[in-house]
Design a protein around this nucleic acid. Structure first.
Lengths: 194, 194
DNA sequence: CGTAAAGTTGACATACGTCAATTTCAGTGG
DNA sequence: CCACTGAAATTGACGTATGTCAACTTTACG
């Protein structure tokens, strides 16, 4: 289940071929933050190779899957011979940086409800499976996961989601979330002030 | 004073030769977040070139300075011919991503006081000028700046700093902050609770 | 069908923001 | 050199969003 743990020597770059992997960081005093969910075709664990050679987070498979990995030497060699690879990497990391900055801004300036809404939108975009009655997040996602993604407690997330469910903005069963109408959630991201 | 504004087409990559530049993002509803202060020798405004070709933030000089910039074509050409440049870029962006993730984690899990302490530590590391009676942040930094760096209001920052000043942990005059003893601030980053 | 994990819900506490009034300071012009 | 101005900073009173604590219910699964 655990692919690598935070703080371990980072020797390989990974690519996920199938499944979902949760990347989460742990604080000195145990608080957890989910950085992202890796989907198929995405790299993970590569950042360590370019900084202090330690994995900066835990990687935990949330659904069965397959991954391949390269040794660092391999990757560097590849990059030296194909400049395009370096450029691609810059693209990928750049996108990640952008997303992280977005989340930082949200956390610094917005209230929980809006942050939860944003988080759902991002998840829907990255892992949404369009279905008959809405967009379903295609992997098990607990209230706790969601809370740790947007800097809230699972209690607040639970209260918020039940409220939204009553209003028909989401449908949930254990670890499953479906969004009948994305626009409805989008509205909750734009609300000036509750 | 303004070098580029958020949302403008990003056509050039910049390097700061001298001075300080504040990088800040503005929210749809006007809230501001300071992403970082650029020091001499650091690049800025490069991320736009690798994503949507729009500057993701404002760049505002806070002290007089000089900068040089490259056109995108120039940079790409350079990267194609010298793979090492791409690798360096990955290093730099990687470090930025790490720092942003750190701040995200702080914002999601820690109280203001600790965040302010962390912010000061980072500033001291990046812009600290060692002096006779401590480390001084070498550029003008208002309470508002500090607040926008750590997701607080300037009021809270002001109250906190006056408290710390009474305890001798910092010394301040207008827009100037000196830290007599870094270790003292470090302690405030580690406090378990309260 | 029993146990553990996930989720819900209520009562209560509080850290921090909001609002508002003053004070201090740096720079400018007479 | 002093008075004036606007920006920065301080400080108090007060409100509230959201965390904390705790009890309970539901669901999944062996």
């Amino acid at each position: 289940m655990t692919i690598f743990v935070q703080g371990a020597p980072a020797e390989r770059a990974h690519i996920l071929l199938e499944g979902r992997v949760r990347i989460l960081q742990t604080d000195e005093d145990g608080a957890q933050v989910v950085m992202r969910f890796v989907g198929r075709g995405q790299t993970f664990g590569t950042m360590g190779l370019f900084t202090d050679h330690l994995y900066p987070a835990h990687a935990i498979a949330v659904t069965n899957g397959t991954e391949i990995s390269w040794s660092e030497a391999n990757l560097l060699d590849l990059m030296a011979r194909h400049p395009q690879i370096g450029l691609n990497l810059v693209h990928v990391i750049g996108a990640r940086l952008r997303e992280t900055e977005d989340r930082l801004r949200e956390l610094a300036t917005q209230r929980v409800e809006r942050r939860i809404a944003h988080t759902l939108l991002r998840l829907a975009a990255q892992a949404g499976k369009a279905g008959h009655n809405g967009t379903e997040i295609d992997f098990p996602l607990s209230r706790k996961d969601l809370a740790e993604m947007c800097g809230a407690t699972l209690h607040t997330v639970s209260r918020t989601l039940t409220a939204w469910e009553k209003q028909g903005a989401v449908r949930t069963s254990q670890q499953r979330i479906t969004i009948p109408d994305i626009a409805e959630i989008q509205k909750r991201c734009e609300e000036e002030r509750a």
